[in-house]
Design a protein around this nucleic acid. Structure first.
Lengths: 98, 98
DNA sequence: CCTTGTTACGACTAACGTAAAAATA
DNA sequence: TATTTTTACGTTAGTCGTAACAAGG
């Protein structure tokens, strides 16, 4: 359950497009294809029904979407939270010097 | 925010030991050291105070612990959930054949 | 045809294990 | 000195981008 792959999944699910997802993620389409493919292999399920004109979410993708959204949200929040706590302690250290 | 690294972090936090975490994760100690080190670099914070006799959690680790626990829990739940939904649909397909 | 997704492949990066070193109690 | 963590290093596996291919409207 690779975290970066979940981000790729969310981008594709959001845009309903591999190429648009690639643009947002600043990677190439082939990279997106591989990421989704490996996620599908790991979960042993098809996540998207592809055609050149539309990308549809499978039921599995629908389930994953909720989890992935929350996982990524928590990941970002964790980073932010740790950063803020660290900054706060830095301020405290500065105050101690005073 | 690598998912596998969070699992390594949880094992070390749980056991308060790099070597014990390594045993549980079925990897070598050096591997654990590297994983934690890279997580510390990514978050730009120290997570554990190491000594040969005890491993203590830093405040940052305390914050991360809550998030990591939930992230990993959701990840496992997602896998299980998708698997079950897939099995259910297989049963349905079987029923259709009948 | 033209856009979108896939495959092939070479280069680069990351992860692991073994072995040796450093640290601390 | 014994246990635990860290560093070094060679190998393996994963990821990316370019280029070529396939498919569908």
């Amino acid at each position: 359950m690779n975290y970066e792959r979940l981000k790729t999944f969310l981008a594709v699910a959001d845009k309903r497009s591999f190429s648009e997802a690639a643009k947002i993620l600043h990677v190439t389409q082939p990279s997106v294809t591989i990421q989704i493919k490996e996620l599908e292999m790991e979960l042993d399920t098809r996540l998207f029904e592809r055609s050149t004109k539309q990308v549809k979410l499978t039921p599995s993708a629908g389930i994953l979407l909720n989890y992935a959204t929350e996982i990524v949200r928590l990941g970002e929040l964790a980073k932010k939270d740790i950063l803020e706590a660290k900054d706060a302690s830095c301020i405290m250290k500065e105050e101690w010097k005073w």
